[in-house]
Structure formats: C-alpha cells, structure tokens
C-alpha cells in the first residue's frame, strides 16, 4: 500500500518536472534572441514531450516523437536556418509595434484561460473513469492493429510523405523555371520558335523586296 502511494507520488513528481521543463523550453524556443539556439531549445522540448508519452504508456509514440521531431524536424529547421541567412538577423526579433505584442498576449491568454476552464471545470472524471484498463505498453498489439485491419493508416502516411516530397520539389522547380529566360529560348521549343521566327522574317523580307521591285518597275 505504502509502495503504491510512493509510486503514485513519484509519477506526479515526474509529471510536474517534465511539464516545467517542456513549458520552459517552449518559451525559450519562442523568445530566445538567437534563432539557432531557439531551434535547439525546440529540439530539446520535443524530446521532453516524449517523457509525457512514456508516462502515458505509449512507448512507440515516444520513440517516434524523438525520431521525427528531435531527429527530423529540428534538423530540417536547422537546415532551413542555414539556407535562410536572413532569418538570423537580430533586427527581426524586435517588434515594430508593441500593439502586436499586446494582441498576441491577449490572444494566447484567452486561449489558455478558456482551455484551463475546459480542462479543470469540465467533469472529465465522469466521462473517463479514474481507473484505466491495464493495457499498457503493448507494442505487439499496436503493430498488429496498425498492420492488420488498419493498414490504411500506413498507406495514408506513405502517400502524404510522397505528396510532400513531390510538392516540395515541384514548387522549387517552378521557382527555377520562373527565373529562366522566356519559353521560346528553351532548347526544345526555342529552336522551333526560332525557325518559325526566321521563316516569317524571310517571308516578310521577300515581300518587302517584291514591293520595292514593283515600285521600281512602276
């Protein structure tokens, strides 16, 4: 009995520590002046959020969180910072008007207040019983569920990834095409265009020549 109470207390302490770390890192990720440090803070925050998933007995999601957010998205944003040198300018961190800051504070305070009311006042304990079923950490069950009758989830994920990759490449290609010279100068179309252009030019030249001849004879 005493052991169970100690475990419950330990779990609550773990939760509070993880929550404080996550919220502090999220704040630093938004407010630190150096954008590179901000991205690192975001990566650490994502890794700390995995702690919540471990507390919620979802170890696969915790692993995926660390792999995708900390390993993938943070690295991607760091690459973004490197490719966008202007993002590192400290002048960007100074707001033009304090009005925007006030609006942001009011908006986020409203969201937080309404959410806190929803979380604390709404009778969640009646909707969800306090004693949850003993399911936890069933990786084999999750795998069977995911790859068995719900394979559509995996296919959807694959499709979305493919769409994102193709979309990114297509957008960058579009940008490059816009920068190139107009369409008639391109090798395929250009040669035909030039031929046509050349043919029409010679035709016009011949007509002028003929007109001049006629004028001369007259």
């Amino acid at each position: 009995m005493l052991m169970q109470e100690f475990e419950a207390l330990f779990e609550e302490v773990e939760f509070v520590v993880i929550a404080v770390v996550v919220l502090l890192l999220a704040y630093l990720a938004l407010e630190h002046r150096e954008i590179v440090y901000s991205v690192f803070f975001f990566g650490f925050m994502a890794a700390s959020v995995a702690g919540f998933y471990l507390l919620l007995e979802a170890p696969f999601i915790a692993g995926m969180q660390i792999a995708v957010y900390t390993g993938g998205i943070s690295a991607l944003i760091i690459f973004g910072v490197l490719l966008l040198p202007r993002a590192q300018g400290s002048s960007l961190e100074v707001l033009q008007t304090p009005r925007m800051r006030r609006i942001g504070m009011i908006l986020s305070a409203t969201v937080m207040t309404l959410s806190a009311v929803l979380a604390l006042v709404f009778p969640w304990s009646q909707s969800f019983p306090a004693d949850r079923p003993p399911i936890a950490q069933d990786l084999a069950g999750l795998a069977a569920w995911l790859w068995g009758e719900h394979g559509i989830y995996v296919q959807l994920v694959a499709l979305m990834m493919l769409t994102a990759v193709i979309g990114s490449v297509a957008i960058l290609k579009m940008e490059k095409t816009e920068k190139l010279s107009p369409l008639k100068d391109r090798p395929g179309l250009g040669s035909r265009g030039k031929e046509n252009e050349g043919a029409s030019e010679t035709k016009a030249h011949d007509e002028e020549h003929q007109d001049a001849k006629e004028a001369g004879t007259q």
Binding site: A19, V22, L23, A26, Y27, L30, F52, L95, M100, R101, I103, G104, M105, L107, S108, A109, V111, M112, S115, A116, L118, A119, L120
Partner: peptide, 16 residues
C-alpha cells in the same frame, strides 16, 4: 492543462 498551455504558447508565437 499542459497541452492547452502549449497551444496557447504556440498561438502567442504565431501571432507576435
């Protein structure tokens, strides 16, 4: 509460 505070922080960052 933690989830909603994070949503509020994110909204603050996106607006300001």
């Amino acid at each position: 509460v933690v989830a909603f505070v994070m949503i509020g922080l994110g909204a603050y960052g996106m607006v300001t």
